[in-house]
């Protein structure tokens, strides 16, 4: 079972985000980390490798600094990495990101492509399905459980109020939700071993794509405006005179907000 995990380097989730004039996040101004959702995909891929054999390859598109994210995944136990980096790719939207990743995947040998359910920066969650579309593969998104049996991949697909059991022959694209597993920490031996693992670098010209298919020129979706989330208003404080009045006030509140 050879798995390629597509990861994205994102600004630290807890960092205050700044925006560039074209409404993109200023990534240079903050600390960047592996998209936390992708860590679940990496862990799931490592577990598949441990139970089924095979290899785990990490694929990312991003600035040269995205190599740090690949390095961390290699320290967790992945075998090799591919970094697609080129100034021409800067500003790519979800669709062209998927297009670029699909062309890089064409150069790799895989049974399964795994991703996190979304990235914590833009949070569109579009890339997994767009990637499956580009690759003409089955798309199994929001998996909370992944199982390989009889040449098929079976997942529990998280939906409101429960889950669907979905299966497909592989190769296929699987995106996982938070909580599908508990991602491991890289060990010191893993960190040392990661230095000896190969990271292949690809540029735009290696992808055999028309010049206007990615980057700013290839964008199909455009961020028109960025608005900070409004400040949370201060909560309402009720000071009832008796326990009975307090219970009544709580019941009124819950009823008014349709909780009861």
């Amino acid at each position: 079972m050879n798995v390629v995990v597509c990861v994205k380097q994102v600004p630290d989730t807890t960092a205050r985000k700044e925006f560039l004039p074209d409404n993109r996040i200023n990534r240079a101004a903050v600390e960047n980390v592996i998209n936390p959702f992708d860590e679940y995909a990496i862990e799931e891929a490592l577990r598949l490798k441990e139970s089924q054999g095979g290899s785990v390859t990490i694929l990312t598109m991003g600035p040269p600094s995205a190599e740090d994210s690949i390095r961390k995944a290699l320290a967790m136990g992945a075998d090799s990495g591919v970094l697609v980096t080129d100034p021409a790719l800067e500003g790519s939207d979800a669709w062209s990101t998927a297009l670029v990743l699909s062309r890089a995947l064409a150069r790799l040998d895989y049974d399964l492509v795994m991703t996190g359910m979304e990235s914590t920066d833009a949070r569109t969650g579009l890339v997994p399905a767009a990637l499956a579309e580009q690759l003409k593969l089955a798309s199994l998104t929001y998996a909370s459980r992944v199982e390989i049996a009889d040449g098929k991949v079976r997942v529990n697909r998280q939906i409101p109020g429960g889950y669907q059991e979905v299966e497909a022959v592989y190769p296929a694209v699987v995106s996982v939700v938070k909580g599908v597993n508990e991602p491991r920490y890289p060990s010191l031996k893993g960190i040392m071993a990661a230095k000896r693992k190969e990271i292949q670098k690809l540029g735009f010209s290696d992808l055999d794509l028309p010049a206007d298919s990615a980057g700013k020129t290839g964008e199909k979706a455009k961020a028109v405006e960025v608005t900070p989330r409004p400040e949370k208003p201060a909560g309402e404080v009720i000071r009832p005179d008796s326990p009975e009045a307090a219970a009544g006030a709580i019941a009124d509140f819950l009823q008014a907000h349709k909780f009861i």
Partner: peptide, 11 residues
């Protein structure tokens, strides 16, 4: 290496 070790322990 030292930076990676520090970051891993910090995490």
């Amino acid at each position: 290496d030292q930076i990676m070790i520090r970051d891993a322990v910090r995490d």
